[in-house]
Computed example of a mutant assay.
Amino acid sequence: MTETEFQQWKDRNAESFAAGIGPARGLNPTEALEFAHRETDKLLPDGRVSENNLIWMACDGDQTIGSLWISTKPRIPFIYGIEVDSGHRGKGYGRAIMLAGEEECRRLGYTQLDLNVFGNNTTAISLYNSLGYTVTSQQMRKEL
């Protein structure tokens, strides 16, 4: 990944995270995006060469169709981001990206892989369930 590709990926990743975290935390879109950029900067202090991070562009031939970001810093690796470009969704790419990430984690000697998914992301929840992921904790809210 070039530095230009990394900056583009980082911006898309922050936008995606902001779309989920904003409603979950009651942030307006500007606040959510600022929060997402701050968190990404903290997690990747050295940009694309930050230690203990796997950041991949997923390609079909020469065409980029998505990305995957896994941190291997915790005892159990954590997926911070998976994305399939909107024009390529529903074609099995998300599953293939997840399986590739799982395989790399196995190759590195890990036996588990964690992720977080926002409750309203039913498509992702369905994918993760079909891949054998199980709920390990659950945060709930009631509107009053």
Rank of each mutant, 00 (worst) to 15 (best):
T2C: 01
E3S: 07
T4E: 11
K10Y: 00
K10C: 01
D11F: 00
A14E: 14
F17Y: 11
A18N: 06
A19Y: 13
G20W: 04
G20C: 09
I21K: 05
I21A: 13
G26H: 10
E31A: 05
E31N: 00
A32Y: 11
E34Q: 14
K42N: 11
P45M: 12
G47V: 02
L54C: 12
L54G: 06
I55E: 07
W56C: 03
W56I: 02
D62H: 13
I65Y: 06
G66A: 05
G66W: 00
S67K: 05
I70H: 13
S71K: 06
R75V: 07
I79F: 04
I82C: 10
E83K: 10
V84M: 03
D85I: 04
D85Q: 08
H88D: 05
H88L: 03
G90P: 07
G90Q: 07
K91C: 08
G94P: 13
G94H: 13
G94M: 08
I97G: 12
L99G: 03
R106V: 07
R106C: 10
L108S: 05
T111W: 08
L113P: 03
L115C: 13
N116P: 01
V117D: 07
T122M: 08
T123V: 15
Y128L: 09
Y133C: 01
V135P: 05
Q138L: 09
Q139V: 14
M140I: 13
M140E: 05
R141D: 03
